[in-house]
């Protein structure tokens, strides 16, 4: 990734734009936000409620879908005996290592590819092919080449994360307003400084979109890889529980996976929003 000094500082929220709103209006806005939050969480609450009562009332077979309460009890047990944490940390470690490696590789490579037009025209079709080859389809290849240890799992995460970041970096650089580049050149900047002062900051929103997409696939791909062959990790936990008929434990693992996915995504979405604030501002 670029060092902080290389990047332009992203704009801070402007006081001038937001202005100081009179209190009643702000209160009304808060009320609206609260109502929205309520509405948005209602569906989840109803779903969880259904999960609790459907098995309890015998609408579904509780051996296959145990009520939520039972799942939560199993979850607390797993958390208590340390199994949950050891598997979660195994998964997180792999996902984050792969993710960070991929971002660290894809951004500079993407910048290079995009800046040198011939390189870009040469490589873009091949990159499209790679991106559209589902990472999971390559799982056997990784296993054959790298075994079933940590390396192959991290490698597949790197693969899955690399292309969204790379392609978004390339397209971010490619869509820089030509006039901005021209005007920067007229201000006496050479190639490198035009890149640093105009091209890179203009591409940042798109790069962060790629990073968010990569975050989602990192977890997805890793869990799948862990289900196929691993001795630790949340994917392993779920498969292990399933094979041993520990159905509540299986759901507890699944719940943990969704929670981590949600959290990771939320962090990345907020980063993305921060990076592209000026772009969002352009549209209104």
């Amino acid at each position: 990734m670029a060092s902080p000094g290389l990047l332009e500082r992203p704009p801070l929220p402007s006081v001038a734009a937001v202005g100081v709103r009179p209190t009643p209006r702000r209160a009304r806005a808060a009320g609206r936000a609260l109502r929205r939050l309520l509405l948005r969480s209602t569906a989840i609450a109803l779903f969880l409620l259904l999960w609790q009562i459907a098995p309890s009332l015998g609408w579904v077979d509780r051996a296959l879908i145990p009520p939520l309460g039972e799942v939560l009890t199993a979850w607390r047990e797993l958390a208590g005996n340390g199994q949950l944490w050891s598997n979660t940390s195994a998964s997180l470690q792999r996902a984050l290592t792969g993710f960070v490696l991929a971002v660290g590789l894809a951004v500079p490579i993407g910048l290079l590819v995009a800046w040198y037009r011939p390189v870009r025209d040469f490589l873009e079709p091949l990159l499209e092919v790679f991106r559209n080859t589902a990472a999971l389809a390559l799982l056997p290849v990784f296993t054959v080449l790298l075994g079933i240890g940590e390396t192959s799992k991290i490698a597949i995460v790197v693969y899955a994360c690399f292309f969204p970041v790379l392609l978004n970096t390339v397209s971010g650089v490619g869509s820089v307003d030509h006039l901005l580049v021209k005007s920067a050149r007229s201000l006496g900047f050479g190639e490198l400084r035009v890149f640093q002062k105009v091209v890179l900051p203009a591409a940042v929103p798109s790069i962060f979109t790629g990073i968010r997409m990569a975050g989602a696939s990192s977890i997805l791909v890793l869990i799948a890889a862990e289900m196929v062959g691993a001795r630790a990790g949340l994917g392993y936990l779920v498969t292990y529980a399933q094979m041993n008929f520990l159905i509540p434990e299986m759901y507890a693992g699944i719940l943990t996976i969704s929670a981590i996915g949600l959290l990771f995504n939320a962090v990345l979405v907020s980063l993305e929003r921060r990076a592209s604030r000026w772009r969002a501002d352009l549209s209104h």
Partner: peptide, 15 residues
């Protein structure tokens, strides 16, 4: 030489 364009060409992320 200083240039001024019809479309301003300001960097949107800078004040």
């Amino acid at each position: 030489r200083g240039l001024v364009f019809q479309q301003y060409a300001l960097l949107p992320w800078r004040t």
